[in-house]
Write a protein that binds this DNA or RNA. Structure first.
Length: 489
RNA sequence: GUCCCCAUCGUCUAGCCCGGCCCAGGACUCAGCCCUUUCAAGGCUGCUACGCGGGUUCGAAUCCCGCUGGGGACGCCA
């Protein structure tokens, strides 16, 4: 019986260790976030390590995408492949000699051995067993288990010599005490024949040599933990604390994949979701703080802890994510003007609009409550920065009709002399005009709105007019009057 | 099949450790109402949950056991 106890309370060192085999998945982001929050909360170090030992699928482009996504999210790291650090390098393929060294140690201690069984042989045995009994679990038969002596001149892998008795017991920060009998362990391969480590070896050696004090990862890795603890023990290394996070599944309760819609960070960025909003949704997934739901990142760096993590898997809900992200855009205390500006700007530019910072800033208060995403906000503001506005044909046809031409022109004339050209003054003059004519606001509002914005939906008329300014307001009203006049009934 | 893990509204969750304040609270979604020049935002109302069966107890969402259901893993992937 061996038991894992958390490492003592030296400054925390946590890591996020993605493999660059694809984009950054939102499930991965949550893992990264929890680690990052813990580092911030405890004043420790957040380390980014690239586990690129799957050479078939790892690419440097993927690594770049992952790093970019992390930067966009604002999850910064103190040590990593691009910034270096005292325990580098931070790409596993650049650490091959380190693993070699630890493997030699394991062999010398009799905790691992060289195995010359070929993959083909073992695959064949696996197939055979499966044919005989589809439900049986294949186990390495132990052919090379007791071989000793120098390295053979045929290719070999390094296998762990798993203990057959006893059990590994460790205390998971989320799941509590977890017991796994060693009898269920196999002589797993630690290093391939080409000298590249497999996940269990690479992760353990790196976590040891990088001084990692707490390992937090997805529950899909929970199965590896007992095996890894055995490795720590075989190496005589101090154990880190472990925390496993429940899984994020799709609506059907399956593993979240591309088929379930947007799962990569880049997709959410392109949709105009704010990083803080995405992170807020993710943190509330499997973690809670009473009834509080909306947090700033700074908030979280104080409130986060492992005790408040749940244990049940959950289902990803895009609608809830949208709602949480929207909440962030609505509130200036969560998304300040400068951040909002930085967020919408690219979406405006994508539409060929290049308003000044001041122009956007003045429009902001009217659109925070309306744009659920920055992409949407850019769409809603479009007519403010485009001359003439892009007309919605259906709206034009419905409201810019001949019988409205006169009033549109009169409104223009009436507003021409309003001063100051602000919401209150405009409203006063406008309602005054309506009273004179015995008209209801209802009858005139939509034609005016279509005139000013080209659309049937917008913020309040007078606010929009004030934003457009006198010249453009008059120009748009008179232009619309002409269109209305020319329209055939 | 074997090993590990999980189980409150459709979804994220509070409550569970330290049983009574819970005929279960918040949020999202959905439906409706109010506000209203449109669209939002905001306010209000409604729908809907302790998986099942046994214990323990005066009393169980909360403790114990079993069942059922779900997930993960069983690779020279991570």
């Amino acid at each position: 019986m061996s038991s894992g106890s958390p490492a003592s309370s030296s400054p925390s060192r946590v890591r996020f260790a993605p493999s660059p085999t694809g984009y950054l998945h939102i499930g991965g982001v949550r893992t990264a976030l929890f680690n990052w929050l813990w580092a911030k909360k405890t004043g420790g170090t957040f380390i980014l390590r690239i586990e690129d030992t799957d050479q078939e699928r790892s690419t440097i482009e993927n690594e770049r995408v992952i790093l970019d996504s992390m930067k966009w999210l604002g999850l910064d790291w103190g040590e990593g492949p691009d910034v270096g650090g005292p325990f580098g390098p931070y790409r596993q393929m650049e650490r091959l000699e380190v693993y070699r060294e630890f493997v030699d140690k394991l062999i010398a201690r009799g905790a691992a051995y060289r195995c010359t069984c070929t993959k083909e042989e073992l695959d064949r045995q696996r197939q055979e067993l499966k044919a005989r009994d589809p439900k049986a679990q294949f186990r390495y038969p132990g052919t090379c288990r007791d071989k000793t002596g120098p390295a053979p001149d045929v290719p070999f892998v390094i296998r762990f010599k798993a203990p057959s008795g006893g059990a590994v017991v460790y205390r998971d920060l989320v799941f509590g005490e977890v017991t796994t009998p060693n009898a269920s362990q196999q002589d797993v391969v630690l290093m391939r024949s080409d000298g590249v480590p497999l996940y269990n070896l690479g992760a353990v050696v790196d976590d040891i040599t990088m001084g990692i004090t707490l390992v937090a990862r997805g529950r899909d890795h929970m199965i590896n933990t007992p095996q890894q603890i055995l490795l720590y023990e075989a190496l005589g290394a101090k154990l880190p604390a472990f925390a496993h996070l429940p899984m994020m599944l799709n609506q059907k309760g399956e593993k979240l994949s591309k088929r379930d819609g947007a799962v990569s960070v880049a997709e959410y960025r392109d949709m105009g979701i704010s990083p803080a909003g995405l992170l807020n949704y993710l943190v509330r997934f499997g973690w809670s703080y009473g009834d509080e739901e909306i947090f700033s990142l700074l908030d979280l760096t104080q409130k986060f802890d492992w005790e408040r993590c749940g244990r049940g898997d959950g289902k990803f809900d895009a609608k809830k994510l949208a709602a949480v992200a929207f909440e962030h855009l609505k509130r200036p205390d969560l998304t300040d003007d400068a951040t909002y500006l930085r967020g919408v700007r690219p979406f405006l530019e994508a539409r060929g609009l290049t308003p000044s910072d001041d122009d956007i800033l003045r429009a902001l208060p009217l659109f925070r409550d309306r744009g659920q995403t920055w992409a949407q906000a850019a769409d809603l503001m479009d007519y403010l920065f485009r001359d003439p506005p892009q007309p919605d044909e259906k709206a034009v046809k419905k409201f810019l009709v001949p019988e409205k031409a006169g009033i549109l022109r009169d409104v223009a004339d009436a507003l021409a002399s309003v001063s100051p050209f602000d919401k209150d003054a405009l409203e006063q003059r406008f309602t005054g005009l309506l009273a004179e004519r015995g008209l209801e606001l209802k009858e005139v509002a939509q034609p005016v709105r279509v005139a000013l914005t080209g659309r049937t939906a917008s913020p309040g008329l007078f606010e929009v007019a004030a934003l457009l300014g006198r010249d453009r307001t008059l120009e748009r009203l008179r232009g619309a009057a002409k269109i209305a006049e020319a329209a055939t009934a």
